[in-house]
Design a protein around this nucleic acid. Structure first.
Lengths: 293, 293
DNA sequence: TCAAACCTATAGGCTTAACTTATGGATCTT
DNA sequence: AAGATCCATAAGTTAAGCCTATAGGTTTGA
């Protein structure tokens, strides 16, 4: 059985004849005759009485008609369902982002995307660690990700979004040189609150301290990122956070200082090479445009 | 879109890969790959993420899956519906019969047919007149008919079932020579109760009387065949009826006599040339077998 | 009653597409 | 690191679908 054949049968009934049905499809009349014959052969029973000039459904044809119409409706609904996704009027966009990037810049991007495409559900996945971002993209669980450059995998492509600087976030009352950058070496005696090893921020910090020739003194190591700023405010120690997060902490009373040399990271949008879904493509374009402003 | 492609997509999801799906269909793996690609081209969007060794549904693919399964279910139900008719487990058989043949032999045939095929609905159509039987068959309104031979149309074929004799049915008390046939000429003075001109019985009677050289004296002419026997019993006149009907009247008190020469008609099953529906074919075989007994 | 119009079926030829095997590229596993 | 597994691509063959032209039959109108 074939959707084409089904369509022909329904048209013959609706149009009242082979010739009119052929004109309506459109297809040549012999082609339609042959297709119907083939279907009847396959089903093992005639669907139409051929009566010279008129045709009439056989009982088998009548039994066939209702499922046939349903069949065509379903085909249309399948097409519509896919078209809705393609047209961004439905569907889901799976995004993975490093935890430090969720608040900034992801929330704004998702907000803008949702305003543009209210029908698309966005799912934000939290990676287990830095490398998980790439894993999730490679395995197709997520379509786009926010991560750190460089990404060195041929299957993944990146678009640079912005550069972030990590700032020192210190307990209230800490004295720092105002207007100037704080040498990293001055962090030598500061107990640090960090995320566990394996996370991207932790590696960045460790690398920077190592480059400055000092050893990190870890005060608190926690998975719970939302606890970092309160810990700092409570005087548990200092931390190194991306600038947007640092500025939020500063507003709450923490002392924030730029470091010298600066610890920077390049934030990129990561995607699999090849075609993206329309939703993912729209998000990518939106993200690139947003950082341009 | 094509049912084959839809089937492929569903199989890929259910089997968890192109190769397994290809083995399950069965079809070669490249053929399946190509078919899915073609479908994706037609829909304008990918249904699967290809991830080297694994595949994963895209959002569009997920949207497609449910209608796709429904599509396959409908196709199966269309096949089943037709198969049910073909297998005589459903459907309808449209029969047309001359009114004088409905009671005998049609009711017995239909009874036997219904016992064999309880799922098949039988519809008995009453023709306007004798030629209507053939019209209904030619136009496909009915598939088989009971009528009189000869049927002289190339589009219609006949199977001889039985020969019927028309008997004189006379009011109670009428004196007829017992044990011998009644000469038709003796009907000269008998007022007759008949159906209107145009009916097959009426023509048969008229012809017979004309052949005997006597004019028919019409007492009552009525469409209401069920009134004929009561009219005879009430003494309104005599009639000429097929033997089965005549014997029934005799049981109610009418006087019945065979005529000389006999008025006979050949009862045939009429059908369109070409293939019949399974129900019609079964009925035909049943009818032919029944008269053989 | 005959011819014209109309409708479906068949035939022949062509084009397209669907399948096959063989092979390449990539990934996962041992 | 090598083999196994999986999907994509290539090339060639076969089959199916569609077209035009035409035949056979029926209905309609003069």
């Amino acid at each position: 059985m074939d959707l084409r054949q089904v369509e022909y049968v329904v048209q013959i009934v609706d149009q009242g004849g082979f010739t009119k049905a052929a004109a309506a499809v459109p297809v040549s009349q012999p082609a339609l005759s042959q297709a119907v014959r083939a279907l009847e052969r396959e089903l093992g029973i005639d669907l139409f009485h051929r009566l010279g000039r008129k045709v009439r459904l056989t009982p088998a044809g009548e039994a066939f008609l209702a499922p046939a119409r349903q069949l065509l409706r379903d085909a249309q609904s399948a097409r519509s369902a896919v078209a809705a996704v393609a047209g961004l009027t439905a569907g889901r966009l799976d995004i993975v982002a490093l935890p430090t990037l969720v608040v900034e810049p992801l929330v704004d991007l998702v907000g803008a995307f949702r305003r543009q495409h209210p029908q698309v559900t966005v799912r934000i996945t939290e990676p287990e660690d830095a490398s998980a971002v790439l894993d999730l993209l490679r395995t197709g669980v997520c379509e786009v990700g926010l991560g750190e450059a460089p990404v060195d995998e041929p299957a993944l492509a990146t678009d640079h979004l912005l550069d972030q600087e990590l700032l020192a976030v210190l307990p209230p009352g800490t004295v720092v040189p105002s207007g100037r950058r704080l040498p990293i070496a001055r962090l030598a005696g500061v107990p640090l609150i960090t995320t566990p090893t394996g996370t991207s921020t932790r590696r960045l910090v460790s690398d920077a301290l190592a480059a400055a020739g000092i050893a990190a003194e870890i005060a608190v190591e926690s998975d719970h990122r939302e606890a970092i700023v309160p810990l700092v405010l409570a005087g548990a120690g200092g931390s190194l956070l991306p600038e947007p997060l640092a500025r939020r902490a500063e507003a709450q009373g923490a002392v924030v200082a730029r470091l010298s040399p600066a610890i920077r990271r390049s934030i990129v949008l990561v995607r699999r090479t090849g075609t993206l879904s329309p939703a993912a493509q729209a998000f990518r374009e939106l993200a690139i445009a947003a950082v341009g402003r």
